[in-house]
Design a protein around this nucleic acid. Sequence first.
DNA 1: TGTTTTCCCATGGTATCCCATAAGAACCCA
DNA 2: TGGGTTCTTATGGGATACCATGGGAAAACA
Lengths: 155, 155
Amino acid sequence: MAGFVAHFTNRLDAKGRVSIPASFRAVLARDGFEGLYCITSSHCDAVDAGGNDLLAEINKRSEAFTKLSPDHDALAVALFGASESPKIDGDGRMTISDMIRDHTGITDHVTFVGMNYKFQIWEPEKFREYRAEAQRRALAMLSGQAPAPSQGEPS
Amino acid sequence: MAGFVAHFTNRLDAKGRVSIPASFRAVLARDGFEGLYCITSSHCDAVDAGGNDLLAEINKRSEAFTKLSPDHDALAVALFGASESPKIDGDGRMTISDMIRDHTGITDHVTFVGMNYKFQIWEPEKFREYRAEAQRRALAMLSGQAPAPSQGEPS
DNA sequence: TGTTTTCCCATGGTATCCCATAAGAACCCA
DNA sequence: TGGGTTCTTATGGGATACCATGGGAAAACA
């Protein structure tokens, strides 16, 4: 099986919980689940989420600088201070923290977007806009060459 | 589970006590808790705190200088003179000493910031400012250089 | 003895655990 | 192929455990 693919929109309940798509949970479990890891994206209103793979990727970036140096401290604050590790309950749900709410604008629905080695957490409407924009850009990039590939509409 | 992640702001009570975030306590316990170690940061208005991992990192740093040399002695004085080891009570609280107060400007609220191998103690408002700055710097550091030799695109 | 520190318990709010249910998907077997 | 059955999944809600916080009492200190 590959990584995280497709996207799903689930409902937030009164307690601020939302079900993580079952297929995403399966990927996390397969990669040796030790905890979900979430970090605010620096360039869009989404939160990156993943398991060990994502954490390793982030660790690698911060290890490029010597510890205790000003540069490393700044990086660590930006990376680890702006992240969190939500628990997943027995039914496969996570709670959307205030940090995620503030950064994404999520209110009552959550869109999970698979991106292979990680997935993103979006407010549904913002994701729609972002995706439309991304497709425009992709089209522009491909314009010189082959016709844009068509693809179906998942959920 | 990884190291210290996320950030929390807790309230200082009338006796000068503040709860250390439960998830941070869990990390300390997991790494074999022998005492909390606090040292004023040399380049910002925060205090570094942590357990054995932080201490090991500092030791590694000072070992770069030959023992008994003037440089090593100076460093040792600077490091250990600016540090302390606060007790943690049965409810997971520490008391904010005058040294920490003076260096951070903390009055009635304390922000704990996870940085993986250590965490920092901040006055909330100052942390907000530092964080904004840190994010700018992190962006520059990660995009300007750091050619991730692994797979392509970071986030 | 007065003051500060340390230990212990109380409490309100929140998060977590556990079970129930409904809808849909997959499955099975005639 | 079709109809019924079982499983999975998302969602709701009650009960419980945990956590941050406040305050009193005992202990240490000056």
